[in-house]
Amino acid sequence: MSIQIEPVRRNLRFALPRGEALTWHPAGLHVTQFFNTLSLFFPAGERFFIQSVRNYRNEITDVKLKTQVSAFIGQEAFHTREHEQYNQALQEAGLPVDALERAVERLLANVARLPRPIQLAATVALEHLTAVLGDVLLRNEVLLKDVEPHFAALWRWHAIEETEHKAVCFDAFESVVESDVRAYGLRVVAFVLANMLFWSLFVPFYIVMIARSGGLFDLRGWWSVGNLVAGRPGVLRRALPDWFSFFRPGFHPWQHDNREFLAQAETLMNNLSGNDLEPQSAA
């Protein structure tokens, strides 16, 4: 692909209002907990992503790609830090975050024992999933409409950077594992298995989060999140073509050219400068 995007390290701190961890989304508890449950996966997941690409850092010879990998690692490290604080707020709200995070850590520790190409293929697979989710968030303004501004800023920042670096691990994979039939088979199998494992954890985690916060028998809440995912607006349902594109033999992440959303980064930074969300210079 001819598109070359240079990821930018943005060392931002969001000072989330900890007392609003269960009420920050105006659509209600079920939608709030959908986002909150996603956050549970990020600290351990992003540490795994960082290590899987670090495994090959000395074998990547392209100077531009090495620079992109370094920026990717920086972005993921900042995401990890901010979601650790996010998840601590959820723990303080009485949710079993520590136990759920340990389950994710145990799973990824087992994956980390597999051969390096499999680890990187798993990262490529999950980076496509996070890129699709990031695109969903940026493309559908209703998702963050009237949301508490600290949480809205964090999710927008994360979505922008997932979009910005969505091809880095893919390009690294093709650089060190090549792009032949075996490599294609590896990344596709990894994609199927990674998605099965992720959603098989996400669904029960989400149910636990809803139950512990008192919404298990709130049918209206379940209806609202069902509409969000599969009904109207059905943002995940409408994102399925982008998700399935990964199976194309000639796939590349930037075949879905959504770089127009990256311009939101400057607006986000300007907005942060105008209130108590203080941007800090990149380390």
Score class of each variant (00 low, 15 high):
243 W>M: 14
80 T>R: 12
135 D>M: 12
258 N>T: 15
150 H>S: 07
174 E>Q: 11
219 L>W: 02
95 L>F: 10
269 M>N: 09
231 G>Q: 06
233 P>I: 02
84 E>V: 06
99 A>R: 00
116 R>H: 15
81 R>D: 08
179 S>E: 15
58 N>H: 04
165 H>E: 00
89 A>P: 06
90 L>H: 15
105 E>H: 08
117 P>I: 05
219 L>H: 02
70 S>E: 15
99 A>Y: 00
278 E>H: 08
121 A>V: 00
192 V>S: 08
35 F>Q: 13
241 P>V: 00
185 G>P: 07
147 V>P: 04
19 G>L: 10
110 N>A: 14
27 A>W: 11
196 M>V: 05
256 H>S: 12
4 Q>Y: 08
137 L>N: 10
158 H>V: 00
114 L>I: 01
270 N>P: 06
264 Q>N: 09
142 V>C: 02
269 M>H: 14
238 R>I: 04
107 L>S: 04
137 L>C: 01
234 G>S: 03
165 H>P: 05
199 W>A: 00
10 R>K: 13
229 V>D: 10
114 L>M: 10
5 I>K: 06
125 A>Y: 08
8 V>F: 04
54 R>A: 10
25 H>Q: 05
62 D>P: 13
155 W>H: 07
160 I>N: 01
215 G>L: 15
221 G>A: 02
106 R>H: 09
248 R>A: 04
220 R>T: 05
86 Y>F: 12
